[in-house]
Amino acid sequence: MTQLILYNLFNGLIIGAFYALMALGLSLILNLSGVINFAHGGFLAIGGYLAYTLMPHIGFWGALALAPVLTAALGLMVERILIRRLYGRDPLYSLLLTFGLAFMFEDGTRYLWGPATVPFAIPDWLSTPLSSDFFFLTGYRMFMVVLAFVAVLALFLLLNRTRLGIRIRAGTLDLETVSVLGVNVRILRNLNFGLGIYLAGLAGVLAAGMLGLQPTIGSALIMPSFVAIIIGGLGSLPGTLMGGLLIGAASGVVTVFFPSASEAVIYVMMGLVLLVRPRGLLGEEGRF
C-alpha cells in the first residue's frame, strides 16, 4: 500500500512537473503581455511531434535539444504575425484568437501525424527500472525529474541574472517605464513569448515519452496548467511552479483511493484556494 501511494505520488509529481513547465510558460506570457495563450497546449503537442519526426535522423538527444528550439521559433513567428496585433486590446480578443489557433494546431497535428497514439521511443538504458523494490523508478522518470528541475533552475537564473530576464521582470511590473528607458518592448515581448513556447516544447518532448503522443495531448494538459497558475497566484512564477507540483501530487495521491476523482480534485483545490485566498498562494495583493 505504501508502495502504491509512493508510486502514485511520484507519478503525480512528474505530471505536476509537466503542468509546471507549461504553466510557467503561460505565466511568462500572461504577466508580460496580458495574453492567455490557449494555444500553449498546441505548441506542446507540436514540440512532441517534431521530436518524434526528428528522432530517426538525429537520435533522442538531438531531438530533445532541437525540437523545443524549433517550437520556440514557430512561437516567435506566431507572435509576430498574429498575437502582436492584440496587445493592449480587450483580453477577449487574444483569448479568442489563441483559441482558434489551438483548434488549428490540434487539427493540424492530427492531419499530419494521424489521430492514433504514435510510439515514442526513448533510449533503452533510460527505460529500465533502477530498483526492483521500487519498480516505478525508471531511469526515464528520474531523468525527467532532473531535466525539469534543471529547466526551471535555468529559467529562474535567466530571469534573475541576465539582462533579458531582468528586463522581462521589470516589464511585468511597469512596461511603459521599461519602454521609456530605451528597451525595445516589441522585441522583449517577442522573445518572452518564444521563451514561454520553448518551455512548452520541452514539456512536449518529455511528456511524449511518458504519456504517449497523440493530437489531444496538449488540450489534456492545458486546463490543469491554468489551475496551477490560479492556485499559485497570478503574477508569481514560484507560485506557478508550486501550484503545478501541488496539483500533480494531489491528483496522484487521489488516484490511489478514488481514481475517478483524480481530475476533479484539482478543481476542488482551486475552489478552496479562491475561497480562502482569492489572489492565490503566492499572488500579490491587488494585482488582478
Binding site: 483580453p91 491554468f226 478543481y267
Partner: peptide, 20 residues
C-alpha cells in the same frame, strides 16, 4: 467564489471551473 475577480483572471477561473 469568483465575483471579486476581474478581467483576464475572471476568464481563466471561469474556464477552469467549467471543467469540473
Amino acid at each position: 467564489l469568483i465575483v471579486r475577480l476581474r478581467g483576464v483572471y475572471f476568464a481563466m477561473v471561469t474556464i477552469a471551473f467549467g471543467q469540473v
